[in-house]
Design a protein around this nucleic acid. Sequence first.
DNA 1: TTCCTATATAAGAACTATTCTTATTTGGAG
DNA 2: CTCCAAATAAGAATAGTTCTTATATAGGAA
Lengths: 147, 147
Amino acid sequence: MKAVAPSEVEQRLEYLRLACRNTGMRMTHQRMEIFHEVAQCNEHPDAETIFKRVRERMPTVSHDTVYRTLASLEEMGLVRRVETVAGRARYDANGDTHHHFVCTRCGQISDFYLEQEPSIPKGIEELGRAESLQVQVRGICHNCKNN
Amino acid sequence: MKAVAPSEVEQRLEYLRLACRNTGMRMTHQRMEIFHEVAQCNEHPDAETIFKRVRERMPTVSHDTVYRTLASLEEMGLVRRVETVAGRARYDANGDTHHHFVCTRCGQISDFYLEQEPSIPKGIEELGRAESLQVQVRGICHNCKNN
DNA sequence: TTCCTATATAAGAACTATTCTTATTTGGAG
DNA sequence: CTCCAAATAAGAATAGTTCTTATATAGGAA
């Protein structure tokens, strides 16, 4: 899985600075590191993975800080919590409209894009006020298929 | 939320009998009760809810049996594990092709149907072998909107 | 029907993901 | 630099799920 382009990562970090300024949240080292970790990869890592990676550079960071920071980032709209496959929430810093291919064997989630975005179906207003639409394709990724 | 029609429940129970016969799994009282509980409602209940309801009629049923049975039913294709909203898996015995409206406030999941099913998008084969496609609409349900 | 045994179960301990508590530290305004 | 509300570290607590072990039972065989 290829990494996110450095310019894109830099732009995402700039959004973080802006969002902190706008909401009055402090721009702590921990927030920088945690967001950077999510922003630089497109593997939709879970909290434990992020915790371990951040801990390599910041050995005293705590679980709580990682979970709390991810929740804050989600509130600020900088990351999205993605469907959980087996008990663990996963996070995605890709703000573009996109969809997910979920491997039902290993849980890996890959982004894909549609040429034409589907519209919110008629009849949804009976159920509630729609805010977003996402297509999820489930299947077995190539890696798992080849064992 | 209206209940599932009795004839439909009966048909789902018939599928269970068939599936048990085909796979050599035993048709235990617990499996009957647990599946019946999922099959008769369309609220996509979570395991704890199912546990409590089954326990009313079967006071000694254990958590483990409920979780284990739901996993077996999923393997047999009789129920589907639905995206978790806040840590809890939810289950759905509606075998028809359908899609979900998820309330991001209360977690309630409602089914909806599309007049025309979307096809698996081109380009997915790069990621893996697709098996199913589901549209998820997120928003706030009427109940939550009116507090 | 009764017997047999692999499969399933109950009970509760254990495990895993996440959140809470409390004492301490720190970003950033003034 | 000083101050303090906000954020953090550490680890306890909680919630959801799975595992362990002794017991029970579905369903085939006799």
